[in-house]
């Protein structure tokens, strides 16, 4: 009895070691190809929308920019090593069980070392009306994370100009605020905030409720899977959602690059022209 037990333990140990030795090929591919990743919530419909949405965004990125992501991958935070990822899309559902404490340790390390999570409460249509929305679920999920103080993305945030010039960040819904790390009150505040100095001032999380994956989602034929708005206005909103997606990935990958001084004069000129056109 005892030798057999020892033997099975040995086998377990060997498999455990080899599992640690050989990284998950999906994640290796994610590191090589900058694949976009989403958190598997267990809600089949939401997960399908996430995958289709990230695939749609990857196609747009490949078509329009130098970033050419591979196939999106689904992540189970309880099992998968996050250190090979850069961007994580996390749709918030009311039914998802919170990850284990070990997973939160990994998630916090991911955030600290330069990764980014986009939390999408997908409730831009109903949020703020007083009815049930995603706030409670988001709070339950995100409470154990080391998230710096957040504030609505200001008009001069680099997210508004990391590839396209944007005024708002629409998804399937239009109007909800997007929250990012609050800008520092002053130099003193920058001293204390751990993310600001570590990662060139790039916010580790973005939180919003515009159901972006649904706006980005395309089926196998390349056709949109969800309706956005109505008519021409709706298509314009979908285009803006893609532009937000492009800006988002550029922000994830290049950080505050577009805040560098070299770009400022040219972009200021362009913004001024645009204002003149608007007026």
């Amino acid at each position: 009895m005892r030798p057999r037990l020892l033997f099975s333990l040995l086998i377990l140990w060997v498999t455990a070691v080899s599992a640690q030795e050989e990284p998950d090929p999906r994640l290796v591919r994610a590191a090589d190809e900058v694949a976009l990743a989403y958190v598997i919530t267990g809600d089949a419909e939401v997960d399908a929308a996430s995958e289709a949405g990230l695939r749609g965004l990857s196609q747009v990125l490949t078509a329009r920019t130098t970033v050419e992501p591979g196939e999106p991958i689904g992540i189970d935070p309880d099992r998968d090593d996050l250190s090979l990822l850069t961007f994580l899309y996390w749709p918030v559902t009311g039914t998802q069980a919170p990850p284990s404490p070990q997973a939160y340790v990994r998630l916090n390390h991911f955030l600290r070392s330069g990764g980014m999570i986009l939390f999408d409460t997908r409730d831009g249509d109903i949020a703020g009306l007083g009815g049930p929305d995603g706030t409670a679920a988001l709070q339950a999920l995100a409470a154990p994370l080391d998230i710096p103080p957040l504030a609505p993305v200001p008009q001069d945030h680099v997210l508004t100009r990391s590839f396209y010039l944007l005024r708002n960040f629409p998804g399937r819904y239009l109007d909800s605020d997007v929250w990012a790390e609050a800008p520092p009150a002053g130099a003193e505040a920058a001293e204390g905030a751990p993310f600001r100095n570590l990662n060139d001032g790039v916010s580790p999380v973005l939180i919003g409720g515009n159901a972006w994956a649904e706006a980005w989602a395309v089926d196998d034929n390349g056709l949109p899977m969800f309706s956005v708005g109505a008519g021409f206005e709706g298509e314009r909103q979908r285009e803006m959602a893609y532009r937000f997606g492009v800006n988002l990935i550029m922000y994830v990958l290049t950080g505050n690059y577009k805040s560098d001084q070299v770009h400022v004069p040219a972009l200021l000129d362009r913004l001024r022209e645009e204002e003149e056109v608007v007026q």
């Binding site: 590191a31 970033v67 330069g114 550029m250 990958l253 290049t254 690059y257 070299v262």
Partner: peptide
């Protein structure tokens, strides 16, 4: 040459170095 996960590593290094003035260009498109 393209935005990639290691790009911010370079930026973090060079921008935190007080002796370095960084001029950065990324081919975005």
């Amino acid at each position: 040459g393209a935005p990639h996960p290691g790009e911010r590593t370079w930026r973090n290094l060079l921008k935190s170095d007080a002796n370095v003035d960084l001029i950065h260009f990324t081919i975005l498109r």
